[in-house]
Amino acid sequence: MQSLTTPIDESSIRSLKVGDTVELTGIIFTGRDVVHKYLHEGGKLPPEVNLKNGVIYHCGPVVIRDENDQWKVTAAGPTTSIREEPYQWQIIRDFGIRAIIGKGGMGNRTLQACREYGCVYLHGVGGAAQVLAERIEKVRNVYMLEQFGSPEAIWEFDVIRFPAVVTMDSHGNSLHDEIQASSRAILDQNL
């Protein structure tokens, strides 16, 4: 188990390999389809959203106002990442992102960007909405809520020991590609 704390420096990222389990502590920003497309098309971020050496989480959380009128996250599992494949490489390059959290893995352009700019893909446990919501200590802020709507807005969370697995590292390796190839070989022997 490796611990990561934001802001994350490049050497910590370079030391990670596919198959490592990590626990992430610090600040993460959610971003899904609308945010990725917006940034890709040259949209500007509010100045408080500092992604340099930071983390983007592919997630559309369920957030409510609790009895004290504070934001409270009631479910926050990862969403499928591959939809951001057309945009992700550019966002890694332009904003200096060090880690992406999502599920299902991503494609070659993202893998190349991870290698070139020093970033990793962290795979969360899909469906584990309650465990992951518990690891979100606090909602620090929310941006572009009116413009994008709640699931698509940029939520800023404080997380503690958020669990994930490195499935794409900064050395060009993808666990998804490896498992796909090895399962193909075993399947062929069993047909």
Binding site: G19, K103, G104, G105, H123, V125, G126, V165, T167, L175, H176, I179, S182, S183, I186, L187, N190
Partner: peptide, 11 residues
């Protein structure tokens, strides 16, 4: 289950 895909495809 011989294919080694595993939970979430992690193996």
């Amino acid at each position: 289950n011989k294919l080694g895909i595993g939970p979430m495809g992690f193996g």
